[in-house]
Nucleic acid binder design. Structure first.
Lengths: 154, 154
DNA sequence: TATTGTTATACTCTATAACTATA
DNA sequence: TATAGTTATAGAGTATAACAATA
């Protein structure tokens, strides 16, 4: 059977294969959260990667870069510019570690702490909005399934 | 309470905020599928975006670029190079449309058709592997929830 | 006037290799 | 030798503005 060309057709295209794909569906879902993230975080000038780094340092003061990179699955080389940018903006500071002069201990500055207090509140609002798409129970299930999926893959 | 610096601590860092974030969890899950995709599709020289374009054209011969862009939520400007690359590789061809000389109808070439037959088979294997992480029933639920989530956001 | 495809451009994220200083 | 941080570089995805040809 020869499939009809749809040049002049008005009906929506057939997307069954992509719709049935876990990979593609994850990508679409993730992109829609990025768009929402940027709407909520634009006022703080924070991108997703920057926010993740700051959240991690805030909760775990003294972390080293290599540990941040490993935790976030970012190449250590790509973290250099990220940290440097946050340091230049006065949000992150490095303290020398006497026992190992190769590393610095990462901390939030006072300004970083103040910014992240507000940013985390906005993030909570963002998450609440995302969860409202599915409802609380279904959102919790989704979260659990995503973790199971990711952990099974590594 | 002052949180203890963890410079010398061996225990894993606190990641509760990120783990509880739908956006971050989606991103991690999606990245793990990309890694798997590249393992399965490297032999065909197809990246995720190229595969999506080819799948769409294959199922809907005669589509126009603007329609492909809209369906995949890609900027039309970013699709130009993508199509051109596939055309240069001899996988996609454009046919003039008499009724509208601005557009071309996109089709797979014979070579594109042959490649995609194999690539879609590999993709099916990839999806089966991803689904095996969760089991069939849970995978189907995840897929449905992802679609509900994405659609509720647009 | 509006749309299609295009060019140009810039930013973000990701990945690898090689270097330095320290351990 | 091995590790932490760095530099350089490249590829891929995404986004916007502006243009020519055509509708």
């Amino acid at each position: 059977m020869i499939q009809q060309s749809r040049t002049d057709v008005q009906s929506p295209p057939d997307t069954t294969l992509l719709d049935g794909s876990l990979g593609y569906s994850l990508r679409r879902a993730q992109l829609s959260t990025y768009a929402e993230f940027n709407r909520f975080m634009e006022k703080y000038g924070l991108r997703p990667s920057q926010f993740a780094v700051l959240v991690l340092i805030r909760k775990n003061p003294g972390m080293r870069q290599s540990e941040v990179a490993k935790t976030l699955t970012i190449q250590k080389a790509n973290l250099v510019g990220l940290i440097h940018e946050l340091q230049t903006r006065g949000l992150v500071a490095r303290q020398p570690v006497p026992t190992d002069r190769r590393v610095s201990a990462l901390h939030l500055t006072r300004a970083g702490e103040l910014l992240m207090r507000k940013a985390e509140a906005s993030h909570a609002n963002l998450e609440a909005k995302l969860r409202s798409r599915l409802g609380e129970s279904c959102s919790n299930q989704l979260l659990a399934v995503l973790h199971a999926f990711t952990n099974a893959g590594s």
